[in-house]
Design a protein around this nucleic acid. Structure first.
Lengths: 171, 171
DNA sequence: GACAACTAAGTTGCGCACAACTGAATGGCG
DNA sequence: CGCCATTCAGTTGTGCGCAACTTAGTTGTC
């Protein structure tokens, strides 16, 4: 293999690309885990994991949602959500019941205890914001970049599914 | 909800912060998983998972390393690495053997088969780069931002451990 | 030499992520 | 009506990530 693809190389060869890739994918991986760790600490008092917190955030805004909708909002499938919601129910934060109109659907609703938990959760974002050391504008900018990136990656990986409805990815 | 805590708010109240937090932490979480998904697809031919690829990238550069060093490079502990390395060994990509000088240490080395795998891996970064739709400069910029963020989060979470040796976080 | 403090790798247990599958309910179509 | 494709939730199996712990080897001190 001298240079197999003598096509449209910018300026780097495959070796450099591999090296750069190591750096970039490591950075993203590490950043995600570092964030996770900070949330883990901040959420310990609430007895929530990071993904459970994400679910509660969605439910606090909307009050009640079918599992399907939660999955669309958070990009999670039932394989992840079903056991997670079971644990949230076991902890007393949410209730699940099958929908009357459509027996296939399960509606998830925050309990009084779950609503009370929100009061404690109000302190979390400031803790996180402080830990990042970023300004509000920087946070917003970061979010925009990440969403663009996610959209690009999703569009590439699978043929753009009908993501339109959410209204959460653009906002 | 008037405004419960009339503390030192920048301009947003707790409600807004909680809303913004939902968006940011979701974005990061989703971006990391979307990235993971693209790598998963790109790595399917190689028979590697994303974390396994990270380990192989490090080993391809250095040839042979003790488990401890790999962990420092990738920010992973033995609880994650031990079974992962076992699987890489079972697949024939690496060899593990206890160090002669220090019997506590286990040295990991790529096999001939593992080295051959690198040739196939050379195509991966271009695939990923194409999927992101980012230019080289944007990729580098993203990496810088993520590393800064990780450093800030790490420094916050645990009292800055002796991270100095790696030479990978700053580079 | 003996003992305590430390270090490296491995193990266990729990939760998340995802692919693949199951099972029940729904909707369309002849 | 009967049949089939689709949809929704849940289950199973594999692998990662991390906390807590275990085991074995090393080092420092007396």
């Amino acid at each position: 293999m001298e240079n197999a693809s003598a096509g449209a190389t910018d300026e780097l060869d495959d070796q450099d690309f591999l090296r750069l890739d190591r750096q970039v994918c490591f950075s993203l991986h590490a950043a995600a885990r570092a964030f996770n760790g900070v949330y883990r600490t901040a959420l310990k008092d609430l007895g929530l994991t990071y993904p459970q917190y994400l679910v509660m955030l969605v439910l606090w805004e909307d009050g009640e949602l079918p599992v399907k909708k939660i999955g669309e909002r958070l990009r999670l499938d039932s394989g992840t959500l079903s056991p997670l919601l079971k644990r949230l129910e076991a902890a007393g934060h949410v209730e699940r019941r099958r929908s009357a109109e459509d027996e296939r659907s399960v509606s998830v609703r925050v309990t009084a205890q779950g609503a009370a938990l929100r009061e404690k959760a109000l302190a979390v974002p400031r803790t996180i914001a402080a830990a990042t050391g970023l300004s509000l504008d920087e946070v917003r900018d970061l979010r925009t970049r990440l969403d663009r990136l996610t959209a690009a990656l999703d569009g590439e990986g699978r043929e753009a599914s009908g993501e339109g409805g959410a209204g959460d990815c653009v906002r």
